[in-house]
Design a protein around this nucleic acid. Structure first.
Lengths: 151, 151
DNA sequence: CGCCATGTTTACGTTAACGTAAAGTGCTGA
DNA sequence: TCAGCACTTTACGTTAACGTAAACATGGCG
């Protein structure tokens, strides 16, 4: 019920130096940052959403990975599946060497996503309207109760 | 990928009379209206989201049920779980005979839902921003390709 | 009457998105 | 040296939200 919508605030400089703008993260740091489990992060990698560097056996995450994770979690909050999110991320990555057909295809997908977003916006608008109605009904009942108490 | 955001348009007056504003629906009608399977509708009933009348063994759905189903599907599109949706629906139903504590509790929940909606709105805004960026990058690459072709 | 569409219950199957547990690796400080 | 932590792989478990199949009821109609 109380999910973290943003990145957790880092606790100043703990043991890590962080000169100005950190370059790499361990899986633990990243998991604390976004308040997800390491398992989740590894799972996202397995699903092709992340591709961290490897120092020996250990995963090293860069800014790029952090951004991807952020996008992934945002997409999830909007109800997209990991597969859908991966689709967009893959497109984003394949951009520079994309041929014309690929790029046209991407514009189509973008247009579709945009339409989805518009639809979600409308859903939210309607949902807020419902909330308004329930609240006003609720308040009017409360008022009735008050009047009965006082009168 | 191509889910129906709205109710399917009814095919005029087919075999059913529908004098002015229909009162009841069969499970099949409802399933066609919203393009979900009967199984889904029965499942929602099992989960306490619908409570249709029974004529013998057969389910009869009224306007109220249709509205509930619509709200449920909208909630789903926004990424809410059936449990969360049921919570709101139950509150909505328990309104008239709610005591003060119940009503206060409902206002709290409404406030929370409202905050969720705000957060989702922000997510959508950011997501649209990303889409803009990807599209502009995409178009600029296309332009480069064009220039190379023409020049 | 028989058939077929549409309904019903019961129950096991499936997929996505992780959780959880076991068992091993590698550095680090007392 | 070794205890402890953070990391790793492997693999089975879990939950939500239905899908699918079997087996049966029922009302209309040619």
């Amino acid at each position: 019920m109380s999910k973290p919508r943003q990145e957790a605030t880092p606790s100043a400089s703990a043991t890590t130096p962080l000169r100005h703008h950190r370059r790499t993260y361990s899986i633990g740091e990243l998991s604390r940052l976004f308040e997800v489990t390491p398992r989740t992060i590894r799972f996202y990698e397995q699903e092709g959403l992340l591709a961290p560097e490897r120092r020996g056996q250990t995963r090293i995450y860069h800014e790029k990975d952090r951004v991807r994770l952020k996008l992934t979690l945002r997409g999830k909050r909007l109800g997209f599946t990991l597969a859908e999110i991966r689709e967009v991320i893959e497109l984003y990555d394949a951009m520079p060497d994309g041929n014309t057909r690929q790029l046209q295809r991407m514009l189509e997908i973008l247009s579709a996503k945009r339409a989805e977003m518009q639809a979600r916006l409308e859903d939210i608008r309607l949902m807020q309207q419902e909330l308004d109605e329930v609240e006003s009904r609720c308040r009017s009942v409360l008022e009735q109760l008050d009047r009965h108490d006082v009168t």
